[in-house]
């Protein structure tokens, strides 16, 4: 991975006051500052402009900047709140906040719904669910017959589509998660509680500057 030439905190595009970010997210101020270290590392790994591009996100997730993945694409698109093709620092911290162990469960449920609502219609449709299952199978090199995939999707729809209209709305999604809480397990990153241990260099360099 490359290295940032800009060391000064204020030079990061979209840099926001840690106090404000801490007040709007489950992170403490020092955790927000530690996240800045991670952000700097990710945002200059390929293009040294202080913004996270999709290729940089893919590189961080897969150690391969060219690896296409439906779910990584969806996550990136949700992080890119301004929809300008890059994730800035504020977007990064606020979006990661949803994955904090202390984040509001409702926020996690809503984020997961938006993630799986591939075409942003306000519903998770049968075709979208099938597309995601196929993407997962492809990624895992698992081969299942179309009949088996249909069975998996049918079974899930019987469980989730309480109104029987062939699509899952937000209310039905909430009910499904209530029944199967493990469905949003991937919306919590335990790492985020120990972020200052993982990226202590900001804290250390701030102390040095203070002296």
């Amino acid at each position: 991975m490359g290295c940032c030439s800009s060391k000064k905190v204020g030079r990061t595009p979209g840099y926001e006051d840690p106090t404000i970010l801490a007040s709007e997210t489950p992170f403490t101020e020092s955790e927000v500052e530690a996240l800045h270290e991670l952000y700097k590392k990710l945002s200059c790994s390929i293009i040294d402009d202080g913004l996270i591009h999709k290729e940089e996100f893919q590189l961080a997730l897969f150690r391969n900047s060219k690896r296409k993945n439906l779910f990584a694409d969806r996550i990136f698109d949700l992080f890119d709140v301004k929809r300008n093709g890059v994730v800035d620092y504020g977007e990064f911290v606020r979006s990661l906040g949803v994955f904090h162990p202390n984040a509001n469960v409702e926020d996690k449920i809503n984020f997961a719904f938006r993630l799986y609502d591939l075409r942003q219609t306000g519903y998770i449709e049968r075709e979208e669910l099938k597309e995601m299952v196929l993407a997962l199978l492809h990624e895992s090199d698992l081969i299942l017959s179309d009949d088996v995939v249909e069975t998996i999707v049918d079974k899930t729809f019987r469980d989730a589509d309480l109104k029987g209209d062939g699509k899952i709305d937000q209310e039905e999604w909430k009910e499904l998660v209530k029944k199967h809480p493990t469905l949003i397990k991937n919306m919590t990153l335990p790492y985020l509680k120990d972020i200052t241990l993982a990226f202590p260099s900001f804290v250390l360099s701030s102390e040095v500057e203070d002296i």
């Binding site: 897969f62 993945n69 994955f99 997962l136 199967h180 397990k185 990153l189």
Partner: peptide
């Protein structure tokens, strides 16, 4: 569990593309 008996969303949640934990690996 066999994929056939799993809820499709449970299956999907195992995707590497959803494992943001790798962002924190040095």
């Amino acid at each position: 569990a066999s994929p056939v008996t799993m809820n499709a969303f449970e299956l999907i949640s195992t995707s590497q593309g959803l494992n943001l934990g790798t962002l924190f690996e040095k």
